[in-house]
């Protein structure tokens, strides 16, 4: 129960940071848009042109209930249904760790959108490192409650890993916003060790 509440808080922080980045009237594609909360609030507050992509039928029906346009698709099939430069922003929030090929998706999303906004949980965060180091077992945290064998989060990465991948595949990091539910100062001081999450804004070089 506690982990659920913490997760919701972290997600709200996540959404708040992303929402701040999106200017009024922008066109926004949200990959793995879940129940559509982020797009709905962006529509209401910033009058954006919104489109969500979601795999779960239950979430999708909820998006429609909220008046959020949404397309039923599997991100692992790529973004071929979207033409290049058709959105100002493509958001990938807390989803990258679950896709089969994060590198391919990052490349595609920075083609479809002028800028990509990626948020993810940093597995280099101290508590995760300590679990691996002292317990000798894969980290299980409040934000990542699964065991290694049943987790949908198959591609966990550290903030450093992400920076490295971006440079490998020719993406420029425009902004990096490490954050935690409470300790933003520490998170900024040494992100890879002290930030539980991070938002990146990226674009094609």
């Amino acid at each position: 129960m506690a982990s659920g509440v913490d997760n919701i808080r972290a997600e709200q922080r996540d959404f708040a940071i992303i929402a701040d980045l999106i200017p009024h009237g922008a066109s926004v594609l949200d990959l793995g848009c879940g129940n559509g909360d982020l797009l709905r609030s962006l529509r209401e507050e910033k009058d954006i042109y919104a489109c969500g992509v979601e795999l779960s039928q239950e979430n999708l029906l909820e998006c429609v209930r909220k008046g959020v346009p949404v397309i039923h698709a599997d991100l692992n099939d790529g973004l071929g249904d979207f033409s290049d430069d058709s959105f100002d922003f493509v958001i990938l929030s807390r989803t990258i760790q679950a896709v089969a090929r994060p590198d391919r998706l990052l490349r595609e999303m920075t083609k479809v959108g002028k800028q990509g906004v990626v948020s993810f949980l940093n597995i280099g965060y101290a508590p995760s490192r300590f679990q691996l180091m002292f317990r000798g077992r894969m980290p299980v945290t409040k934000a990542l409650p699964y065991a290694w064998y049943n987790t949908p989060n198959i591609h966990l990465a550290t903030i450093k890993d992400f920076r490295f991948l971006c440079s490998e595949i020719g993406l420029r990091i425009i902004e990096e916003i490490p954050f935690g539910p409470k300790h933003n100062l520490l998170a900024r001081l040494w992100p890879n060790l002290l930030a539980p999450s991070c938002v990146f804004i990226i674009e094609n070089k």
Binding site: Q57, C63, I71, H72, D81, S86
Partner: peptide, 21 residues
Amino acid sequence: SREIVKALRNNNIEVSYCEME
């Protein structure tokens, strides 16, 4: 249906698509 959705998307037409189980 996905072809239709793609064509609509490429015209920037607002479209929702559900592949119902």
